[in-house]
Design a protein around this nucleic acid. Sequence first.
DNA 1: TCTGGGGTCCTAGGACCC
DNA 2: TCTGGGGTCCTAGGACCC
Length: 440
Amino acid sequence: MYGLVDGNNFYVSCERVFQPRLENRPVVVLSNNDGAVVSRSAEAKQLGIPMGAPFFEVRELLRRHQGHALSSNYALYGDMSRRVMARLADHVPSVEVYSIDEAFLDLHGLTTFCGSLDTRARAIRRDVLACTGIPTCIGMAPTKTLAKVANRLAKKHPELGGVLRLDTASRRERALRALPVGDVWGVGRRYADKLAAHGIRTAWELSQVSEAWARKHMGGVVGWRLVQELLGQPCQGLLPSEDGTLARQSISCSRSFGQRLFLFEDIWGALTTYLSRAAEKLRAQGDQAHILTVFLSQDRYDTRVPPPYTRSATLTLPGGPTSNTLQLLSYARRLLAKLYEPGRQYVKAGVVLDGLEPPGRGQQLSLFGAADDIIIPPADTGRTHQLMHTLDTLNRRFGRGTVRAAATAVAGAQPAPWQGKAQHRSPAYTTRFDDMLIVR
DNA sequence: TCTGGGGTCCTAGGACCC
DNA sequence: TCTGGGGTCCTAGGACCC
C-alpha cells in the first residue's frame, strides 16, 4: 500500500505560515519575473483564476477582492519542504520525495503496529501541520497512480478530513467512474483529447481498454503500465530518497530575462550566472557531468518571429566529466557562440547538465584530443576541486553570489541587464538571520 | 508593457561501428 | 548483380509531471 502526501496550495501555505494576514483571502504566488500564477489559495481558485494565468490578466481581479500577489520565494519553500519531509520520515519506513510539495509513503505493514491506516494518516497530517504549519492531504491505495487519485479526491472533498483510502474494488470503481480521464496522473492534454476522440472520458473507461490498445495509443509500454496501475496492479515501486533529497539524473538552470537582450556579452553574463548555479547544485549532489546543453530562446509570443523559438546545442565534454564551474563555462561559451545570432532579440537562456556520475570512476580520456573547434580547458586537478569547495563554502556562509565569475559583474550598483522582476518577494524567514521574524 | 522553471521518460533518424 | 543484423552515440523533440 502506498500513500501520497501533498501540501495544499503549497507555496501559498508557506507564505501564510509567516503572514497570517493572508488567511481567508485570495492569495497567489507568481513565477519568476512575476510573470504567471503558479500557486493559488482556495479563495483565489474560487475567483476563477486559473493555474498558469499571466499576472497582468488577473491583477485587477485580485485587487478588487483585496487579494495578494507574491513573488516566488524558493529559499522559503525549499526549506519548508525539507521540514515537511523530515516529519514524514518519522512516521513510515521509507519516503520518496516526489516534488517540492509531494511525497510517496511506503505503508506496507504499518497497520499491524499502529491501528488502522486511516488513523495513522490522520496522525501524520496533524503532526505535519503542528510542526510546520503546512496543511496536507493524504491518499492511500495499492498503486502510486491510485494513491494520486485518492489524494485528488481527498483534496476535492474537504468533508473527508484530508484522508482517503482506495483499497477495495468497489471504492476504486466508484472513484474512477467519477474522475475525468484528463485528471489521471500521466494523462496530459494531448492524450486527453485523443482519448476523448475514442469515446474515453473517465478514468474507469481508460482502465477497461485492452493491452494492445493501450500500447498502440498511449505511448507504448508507458500506457499499458498506466492502465494496470488503475486496475490496482503496481508497476512502479517506491524509490526511497536519501536524507530527504532526490538524486537527480540531470540538473538545469534557466531564466527568462527581465528584458529582451541582444548583446552577446549580456546573454553570456546571464548564462554564466545560471551555469554557476547549476554547477553548484551538481557539486552539492556530489556528482560530475559529462554532457552540457546550452539553450537560447526568442519570444514565442511574438508573431513576427518564426519558429523554432528555442535553439539548443549539446556537447559531450571532450575533457571527461567535471563539476568545475570554470571548465564548464569555457565549454558553454563556445556552445553559446554557436547559437547566438547578432540582431536577434532573446528572452530566455539556460543550461542543462546531463550524464551525471560520482567522481573517481574510471574516466575515458581522449587519446588524440577533440575536434579542432573545441579547445579542451585545463583538466580538473586537486587544486581546482579545492577551489570549487572553497567557493561553495564561502557562498554558503556569506550568501549566494558572494564569490562569482567575473562575467556576471555589472558596473556600479546597477542591476544586471538580465535580472528579472520580483516586486513582491517575502523575506527568507527560515534561511537568513536578517530575515527572521521577531516576536515581541 | 506583462505569458515560469525544473524535472522524467520515450522516440526517431543519422552517423558510425563490427 | 547480389548488399544483414545488431549495436551505440548524438541530437532533437514530444509528452508528461509539479
